[in-house]
Design a protein around this nucleic acid. Structure first.
Lengths: 191, 191
DNA sequence: TGTACATCAGTGAACGCGCGTTCACTGATGTAC
DNA sequence: TGTACATCAGTGAACGCGCGTTCACTGATGTAC
């Protein structure tokens, strides 16, 4: 049954949103096209009316997830008291909530190993997302030091992504919390 | 044809070694048991004479890869001039060579997203490897500051893992080099 | 030390299963007159 | 505004394929006497 153009566009959005979430939760290889479609309330056959391949969906989902992450962090940084933007970003990114819910979190920490092995469209989407995040952090970093703001921002972003990765891979909850706290202190000292 | 106990043990080692490499290169889900066995010069049927499942091999391969990484970095740190151990570690870990050859490098950066979703044996192997790496770094960090050596070591390890992850996910080679250099400076400043 | 038997590492065919993708079909939506 | 036709979003069966795992078999190795 044909849907209106508007309804079809909404469906496409819904598929991307579901995919972004499920990919982060199970890995791109860990969830099937049929599963994504079912979670979006559809049957699998219609998938190819919206995307040329699963890879194309992966690229789109990465793009979407990264833009959402940037927006969330940017909003938090704006809302923070002057000079406290980085704290606001770190409070969200290095939170236990973020560690425990990869499906709603940063796709770099959740899928970076996998995306590095995927095709150019996905890689480009991730690369652009990383640059955007680095730029956001650079805007929250003190000016006028010997090392450029963007360079320091890259170091901070590395620490953020790595800390979340480690926190999700240590079994001991204590050690995971420690990893997040240590990274927070490290990132702030580098501001 | 039955092999001698000694030969069989060597075969098992060879399978683990090949798997550790291929898993890092293609992801655990990205390479089949048959492919691993073929690369080890065997047919796939004999796999289950050595391992109960692919998951068991994954855990073993992670353990092996992490131990090798720790040994390599520890050796470099020992060989470095006094007080320069961390530089030696970072020179290896944050090198372009490491970025370009995940198959011979740190399994955390290559597979962390995936291992976080695997079963307890693999997770434990990774968790132990992380702790061992953190301990090694802690031994190369200045004593007697307000934040404990292990905490600082965790921050440094986060930065290392994150920087390698980012460097492998930005398309622009320039940006990748910058990520590694920035992380190096950040990690050293935190020593 | 020699012999008879049990063990088991390795082979290659086969298994069931889930995957990404294709296809014929349906019928509401969009368009041309 | 109404009508006839083309379009195409969504359905569900089917496709070929590769996967992890199992199995009957082989014959050299290990063991018991």
């Amino acid at each position: 049954l044909r849907q209106s153009r508007e309804a079809a566009a909404e469906t496409r959005e819904r598929i991307i949103k579901v995919a972004a979430r499920q990919f982060r939760k199970h890995g791109i290889g860990g969830i099937s096209v049929a599963d994504v479609m079912a979670k979006a309330g559809l049957t699998h056959g219609g998938f190819y009316k919206h995307f040329r391949s699963k890879d194309e969906l992966a690229a789109e989902a990465c793009r979407r997830a990264l833009a959402a992450a940037r927006d969330e962090l940017a909003t938090a940084a704006m809302a923070a008291p002057k000079g406290r933007g980085l704290e606001a970003i770190l409070d969200i990114y290095l939170s236990m909530n973020h560690r425990d819910h990869p499906e709603r979190g940063c796709i770099i920490a959740a899928l970076a190993g996998e995306t590095a092995r995927l095709g150019p469209p996905t890689r480009e989407a991730v690369a652009e997302g990383i640059e955007a995040l680095a730029a956001l952090i650079a805007s929250q970093v003190d000016a006028g030091r010997e090392i450029s703001r963007l360079q320091r921002a890259r170091g901070i972003l590395s620490t953020m992504v790595g800390a979340l990765t480690l926190a999700r891979n240590v079994s001991d909850r204590e050690a995971a919390d420690a990893a997040l706290r240590s990274a927070r202190a490290a990132a702030l000292s580098w501001r």
